[in-house]
Amino acid sequence: MNSVPSQTRRPILLGLGIMLVAFNMRPALTTVGPLLERIRAETELSAAGVAFLTTLPVLCIGLACTLGPWVIRRLGPDRGVLLSVAIVALGSGLRGLGGTPPLFAGACLAAFGIGLSGVLLPGLVKRDFPGQTGVVTGLYTMVLCLGAAAGAGLSVPLADRLGGWPTALALWAAPAVLATLAWLPFAKARETVAGAARPRSLWRDPLAWQVTGFMGLQSSLAYIMFGWLPLVLHDRGLSAVDAGFVSSLMSIGQAPAALLVPSFAARVRDQRGFAAGLLGLCILSLVALVYGPLAWALPIGMALGAGLGGLFGLGLTIIVLRARDPGAAGNLAAMSQSVGYTVASLGPLSFGLAHDLTGTWAASTVLFCTIATGAFLCSLGAGRDRYVGKA
């Protein structure tokens, strides 16, 4: 039997490696929300402390993104991905020590690795799959959403079976270790770009800022839901297990949209219609979950997930489409995610504080809708068929 030529086998293996890395880009974030009540009870965290626990990891993602261009120049994107997923494994395992300091430190460390990998992957897709950017972006975004769903849905059952939330959280280091080992051959085999020329700065580019605004604000919607949806549903009367199950279904609902939206959006010249439809779906779904009948929580949660997953895939696709080459894609990814996730980190904090101050979820819902409106305004520029860095 003839062996598969290396030219064919290598992209396939590289694509599988990207999928393994992508799977580990959300469980460190989605595993905490369903366990918040237990964490609060055992650590005696205040409401503000819980808000910071859901906010600091997102802020760390933004801070990590600022290092993306430096890592690409010093290590190369392939070794950078290896470093990032190893950091995720270390941070996830650290949470197993129990107590408040390891919980916060592990969450922030894992988020740092997530942010770094998020900056590096769009450039890799642009470099290694130039003719299939929409398909590959959709695939790894779908796998990312499946990882988020696994984290949200399994955290409570694992805590019940393993005797507590620290062990359940630490267990998510295992798939990150597997991804680290799987990526090791690519980091050894591929050339680095140490000493490469710095790409053109985008900080004065209006289009880059529009992409950044869209990426940050739509991400804020997702992180609000990752951190607070289980508690919203629990307050409405669902058990912790059922609330976690709805949150898991929300993450599962992200996967089909995360796969399909990038594939279709990459085929058209203008992505503004996609943004408007997906943001409208998110607003309607959250309002229905907060004020509608709980009997409809499962399908509405999946609809919310479809909106959030589609928006995330659309954001990553826009980054690739608005860049002429891999260097510009990496530079735009670094800017849009460093600033964007820093802005996004304010969403979960503000959402929680609004509830803490008013005692209801009404003000928090209004805040969510306001953020979605801001994302739509940014998409009016970010979705147009132009390139960043044009003279």
Rank of each mutant, 00 (worst) to 15 (best):
G115P: 01
V81A: 09
L202S: 06
Q132C: 03
T317D: 13
A179I: 07
Q337V: 04
L260H: 04
L380M: 13
P157C: 09
S219L: 07
A152V: 09
L294M: 15
L154D: 09
L178Y: 01
E37C: 12
A148C: 13
F376C: 08
A176P: 03
L90N: 01
F129L: 01
A173W: 12
R38E: 07
L207N: 05
G15K: 04
G113A: 13
V287R: 07
L146D: 14
F245I: 10
V50L: 13
F52I: 02
A222N: 08
L308D: 06
V143F: 09
L63E: 05
M142Y: 01
I18S: 11
V246I: 11
Q254A: 15
L178K: 01
L120A: 08
Q271M: 10
L281T: 13
I114P: 00
A86G: 14
A197Q: 11
S336H: 02
M142W: 02
A288C: 13
A64G: 04
T54D: 00
R40D: 07
A148Q: 12
G147Y: 05
P348L: 10
P175V: 06
R26I: 01
V119S: 15
L332V: 02
I18M: 12
I300Q: 06
R272C: 06
A176S: 11
A189N: 10
A375L: 06
M335W: 02
L278P: 01
I39E: 11
T180D: 04
L367Y: 05
A266L: 11
L35C: 14
L221K: 03
A47G: 08
W183P: 01
S155H: 02
G131R: 09
R73A: 11
A64P: 03
G123R: 00
A196M: 08
L289F: 07
P27I: 07
V339R: 01
R10C: 02
L380Y: 05
S117R: 14
L56H: 09
I252V: 10
A303N: 15
W172Q: 09
A48M: 11
G213S: 12
G381T: 06
A22K: 04
Q132M: 10
G134R: 02
L289S: 03
